[in-house]
Computed example of a mutant assay.
Amino acid sequence: MRTNAPSVVAAIIIALEGLGLLALAGWQLVALVSGDVDSAPSALALLVLTLVGAAAVVAFAIAVARRRSWGRSGAIVTQVLILAVALGAVTGAYAHPLLAAALAAPAVAALAFLIAAARRAAAEEGRPDAS
């Protein structure tokens, strides 16, 4: 099997996003343990959901590296969701344009590499829609 550079680059970006989610979960855990939360059950639920999301994103990264189509599909959905969060971060009364840019830039790059990886996979399979 030949190396698919777009898949490798996309997998690296997606894996870094997964690590970012794990870091966020660590931050949430510290806040929960230190009592810096308004509602412990809600904070615990958010922590669990963040860990589930991190596991899914890391699984997508592994699948993209292994050139599995389900990984690319899940990763594309993840990038669109990240772009939605970035849009929310740049609008409203408490807008943070730099945070929005920091979220959007890797998501756009990952999308571009995921599309390139999907096109290359289609071309290698000899499908006519790869042009």
Rank of each mutant, 00 (worst) to 15 (best):
R68Q: 15
V33I: 09
A63I: 06
A59V: 10
P97W: 05
A55G: 14
A45Y: 08
A93W: 01
A31Y: 05
A107R: 03
V52F: 10
L46E: 14
A43F: 09
L51C: 04
V58Q: 15
G26A: 00
A31H: 04
A102R: 07
A100I: 02
S34I: 09
L32F: 01
G53L: 07
L46T: 11
L98S: 07
Y94K: 09
V33Y: 01
D36G: 08
S39M: 09
A107Y: 00
A100D: 00
V90G: 12
L46C: 04
A43G: 15
L51D: 03
P106I: 05
S34D: 15
R66A: 12
P106A: 05
R67H: 11
A63K: 07
S34Y: 10
A75Y: 03
L103Y: 01
V64K: 05
A75C: 08
G26L: 01
Q28I: 03
L46R: 06
D38P: 11
G35T: 13
D38K: 12
A56W: 00
V80M: 02
T78V: 02
L51I: 02
D36I: 02
A75N: 07
V30G: 14
A45L: 13
V52K: 05
A102N: 04
I62E: 09
L44T: 05
A40L: 12
V37L: 13
V30D: 13
V77Y: 01
D36M: 05
S73Q: 14
A65L: 12
V90I: 10
L87G: 03
L29I: 08
A86K: 00
G71N: 09
I76N: 07
P97S: 08
V33A: 00
V57C: 07
G88K: 05
H96A: 07
I62L: 14
V85T: 12
R67Q: 14
V90Q: 06
A56H: 00
L103Q: 03
L46F: 05
G74C: 13
S42Q: 14
